[in-house]
Design a protein around this nucleic acid. Structure first.
Lengths: 192, 192
DNA sequence: GTCTATAAGATGATAGAC
DNA sequence: GTCTATCATCTTATAGAC
């Protein structure tokens, strides 16, 4: 029902996603988007009245797909450590596909300049992802593979911030994300 | 000699710094800058031929001042842990002054869209800061207050990425940087 | 749904007077 | 050094034909 196959609309969101991940919300224009999809800028407005509408739906779809990815990770891997590693693999995949940031990191940095409705969805994106990760970390600790003090929610925020920062660094220095990710896992699994 | 007191030029760099930290390179304009300093956009071009020149000098000055700050930390604190905490305090200060990103994080995220000369200075900014931090971490480990495996340079990159990610998150959720920073110190000083 | 045409404003940048 | 005036181009967005 929701999400009927409107191919132009989907193509616009696909192109906008890549542009937003590589350049940011402020650095891509309707013209960039129109050129990539092969229509005129006027046609974009038929699908999305304003850039803010486009941005908002972009983040909503990104969150839904990321959460769907997390559910698939849960279905395919039962061990918390493997779940975490698979999640990190998703982020790594974005970098390897062309030094793309996660939308969390990119829109987080641009947060002050985003339209209100986009901001709301970005916050929701953070909370959903960190919530899933808190579950993985909490379960990992209870089975004894992860080791940390305090609230899993707090540690999830810390781990997520670290990964986002690693992706950001990878924009300036290729091959730096892996060092951050591996160090993170080592820390979490460290047997003091 | 270098850096004669050209007050308009300095005022431009000051205003550009705040705008770059809060909005990013792509989101601020010569008009924003001119309005804040009280001159016209044409006058900006007398001091900086292009926006790329302005951006480049902005990053250079930022790096020089940050490194000067690190030297002052070294002079005022001898314990590695206190040095790290003071550095974190500098980042926290930027957030508390108005949810400002570090230029590393903001320009790192925008990296793909930055003019070449600005990119070069951003890389240099990362390297200088991470180099200083590697020294603090290495010394901390040798005196037994920090505990980590592997190369101090690698861990410095990880710690720095984590802090940058924490600042990014703080743009969307106030009061989140402290949780990241405190968790980080706890991890580094943990007595397994 | 997509187009052409157009709008109103912003953008970085230049020429030349003062 | 700073200004006015101007530039070409880009920006998001709208009206109306097809």
């Amino acid at each position: 029902m929701a999400g009927t196959n409107d191919s132009t609309r989907e193509a616009l969101l696909d192109a906008a996603k890549v542009l937003a991940q590589t350049q940011g919300y402020n650095a891509f224009s309707f013209r960039d988007l129109a050129d990539r999809v092969g229509i005129t800028t006027a046609s974009i407005h038929y699908h999305f009245p304003t850039k803010a509408h486009l941005g908002r739906e972009l983040v909503i779809r990104y969150r839904e797909r990321l959460m769907e990815g997390c559910r698939q990770i849960d279905a395919r891997a039962t061990k918390p450590r493997e779940r975490l590693e698979r999640f990190i693999g998703v982020l790594r995949g974005a970098i390897e596909k062309g030094t793309r940031m996660c939308l969390c990191g990119m829109f987080g940095a641009e947060f002050a300049t985003l339209p209100g409705p986009v901001r709301d969805e970005v916050r929701s994106l953070f909370e959903a992802t960190e919530g899933w990760m808190a579950g993985v970390l909490g379960e990992g600790r209870s089975v004894g593979v992860f080791r940390f003090d305090g609230d899993p929610e707090r540690v999830a925020r810390q781990v997520f911030a670290s990964l986002q920062g690693g992706m950001m660094t990878a924009c300036a220095f290729e091959e730096r994300f892996n060092a951050v990710a591996e160090g993170l896992i080592r820390t979490l699994t460290h047997k003091g």
